[in-house]
Design a protein around this nucleic acid. Structure first.
Length: 558
RNA sequence: UGGGGUGUAGCCAAGCGGUAAGGCACGGGACUUUGACUCCCGCACUCGUAGGUUCAAAUCCUGCCACCCCAGCCA
């Protein structure tokens, strides 16, 4: 697997130093998703960072489900996440873990904390706790329950576990410092009561550990050396270290280190689960795997390759600066990958009929076309051509604009892999349907001696006599640029209702062999991936990404 | 106004006291039976800003400014 993440980054520098100073003798990381939703492209940065860091140091990386909140987690999310990570090509060589497998050990440590006066059961209400916590600028004050006797704490905590107390009636808190300028240190919650069915432990527990307590302890249990996470946990690091240090005697010498990096933001892309969910629930998209979604299942369905996503993550680098990466880079990466791999084929999205005036009715010729212009080893396939073909409506102009070297009356163009044709005119039937008339220069047939004659334009086409109908789904950005700062977060308002464009076209017969998930380059149109919505009668293709198009860019400028 | 972070080109990002890598985007050109691909060329006299130290500063020091995160019994 490639490992060309920017040659240097601050995390690897830090690890190099740790290794040099013998603070660690090996590197062990972990990817810890909460199974409460689908993975999206933003998660890939954390995925890549943790897995590739382990790989760089010949270390291990664990996959750990951080399932400590039964209210939000579901089994099908763990299945989906596993599928996505496998698809991305990452291997949890350190093993598969669940925080929920450690509930008893977390509990034992909590009891030990109580015994040592490091934790207490608080009966303040949620509102009272908020008040007692103080504010960003004012210190908090101690709970009246803070100094209750150890025996009482032990008894109450045991009762919490036994289900003798209501949800919200009491929590277990770490006893740290209510006056700390870091709010996370103001006696954070360690355990809360939750009478919820857990997707793995069922009803065995009714108290569940909080992230701040379980995460560092879990890292230690798994022998994680470097716990790589995103920037918002920076403030939690002192707490992370506090738990590791205070529980040291029960952690077998493990002393994981947390290092934070900036998460991925993509221009015009919503990454938050809440808004992704709102798009699904408001039926603005067809589901979590709608090709417009930034979820991995959405990108996969659209036709993105795991290689292109990995290449993208490797190119964006790793730092602590808040950033927003241009989606143009992601598109570049998928073009780069598919450009190498995709078989070229012909499909016309907006068909217009062309009839050859000097072609005998009923005559058919068979042509051989390369699957890839740069790689002859990828083979060839055949196309047929008859008296009538379809070309792209946008490839014809009655009155051409300047620099237009496609088809227009009186001009010659090459039909790719076939002949040069001269446009002699066009006619419209009573319904206004266009028919273009061309004469064929039979001496210019591809592969023959006359094939070297140069004309300015080359068009793709399909044989009207044997082509197959198909549906093309073209996608645009799901979010419109925000009009102003205030509205920028109103993702429903910013939803691009023209983000899906459906066209009915014709594709060459060869494409009838395509299987769901296969991706081709439709000549001059872009990369297209066959969608599961396809039927026997009509294939459906998603456009992964268009080709670079300097001509239409030019037109827009003028 | 408390604490924790971050500022290098339109967007990312290297740089770690010796005179601004690389990628994307953009512009120009060559090639072309995909206006694709590929290939050339161009694109920061300056690193948020103002001072200071030094023969030498994006790198060290000081002040200021801007932006992000934190007051869940979410992760």
């Amino acid at each position: 697997m490639e490992n060309n993440m920017s040659v240097s980054n601050f995390i690897w520098d830090a690890i190099d130093k740790d290794l040099e100073e013998k603070i660690y003798t090996e590197v062990h990381t972990r990817f810890p998703p909460e199974p409460n939703g689908y993975l999206h492209i933003g998660h890939c940065k954390a995925l890549y960072t943790n897995f590739m860091t382990a790989a760089k140091y010949n270390g291990l990386c664990n996959l750990r489900f951080d399932d400590t909140n039964p209210a939000k987690e579901e089994t099908h999310f763990v299945e989906g996440i596993i599928e996505d990570i496998r698809w991305m090509g990452f291997d949890w060589n350190g093993g598969l873990f669940y925080a929920s497998d450690q509930y008893q050990r977390f509990y034992d440590i909590a009891v030990d904390f109580i015994k040592r006066g490091l934790a207490y059961v608080d009966e303040l209400s949620v509102d009272e706790i908020r008040t007692y916590r103080g504010t960003l600028t004012e210190p908090g004050k101690n709970s009246p329950y803070r100094d209750r006797p150890i025996e009482e704490n032990l008894r109450l905590f045991a009762e919490m576990k036994e289900g003798k107390h209501k949800e919200g009636s009491m929590i277990l808190r770490a006893k740290i410092d209510m006056a700390s300028p870091n709010i996370n240190m103001r006696d954070p919650a360690m355990y809360r009561i939750l009478f919820k069915h857990h997707h793995r432990t069922g009803d065995a527990w009714c108290i569940y550990p909080m992230y701040d307590f379980s995460h560092p302890i879990n890292d230690a249990f798994e022998g994680i050396t470097h716990s790589l996470c995103s920037l918002e946990y920076e403030d939690h690091r002192p707490l992370y270290e506090w738990f590791v240090q205070k529980a040291a005697h029960m952690l077998d010498g493990a002393h994981p280190r947390q290092i934070e990096f900036a998460r991925l933001n993509l221009s015009n892309t919503v990454m938050s689960k809440r808004y992704l969910r709102s798009l699904v629930e408001n039926h603005l998209v067809k589901g979590w795997d709608d090709p417009r979604m930034p979820t991995l299942c959405g990108l996969r369905r659209k036709g993105y390759t795991p290689e292109s996503i990995r290449s993208f993550i490797s190119k964006i680098g790793l730092s602590k600066a808040d950033s927003e990466v241009d989606t143009a880079l992601l598109e570049f990466c998928v073009r780069e990958d598919l450009g190498e791999k995709a078989i070229r084929a012909s499909a016309v999205l907006e068909p217009v009929l062309v009839e050859f005036t000097n072609w005998p009715e009923g005559k058919t010729e068979t042509l051989s076309v390369q699957n890839h212009p740069n790689y002859p080893a990828m083979g060839e396939h055949t196309m047929t051509i008859g008296k009538r073909i379809y070309i792209e409506a946008t490839d014809f102009m009655e009155e051409p604009v300047k620099k237009f070297h496609r088809m227009s009356p009186g001009k010659e163009v090459r039909l790719k892999d076939a002949f040069i044709v001269l446009c002699e005119g066009f006619e419209r039937d009573e319904n206004g349907a266009l028919k273009i008339l061309c004469s064929v220069d039979f001496d210019s047939r591809s592969g023959s001696e006359g094939a070297n004659r140069k004309v300015k334009g080359t068009l793709h086409w399909v044989n009207a006599h044997d082509c197959l109908p198909f549906e093309a789904r073209l996608y645009e950005q799901i979010l419109l640029p925000s009009e102003n700062e205030e509205d920028s977060k109103d993702y429903i308002e910013r939803f691009n209702h023209d983000s899906l464009l459906v066209k009915s076209g014709y594709m060459e017969r060869y494409l009838g062999e395509a299987k769901v998930g296969d991706t081709y380059q439709f000549l001059r149109n872009g990369y297209f991936c066959k969608d599961p919505d396809s039927t026997e009668d009509c294939a459906v293709f998603n456009r992964v990404v268009g080709l670079r198009d300097t001509f239409s860019k030019q037109l827009k400028q003028e």
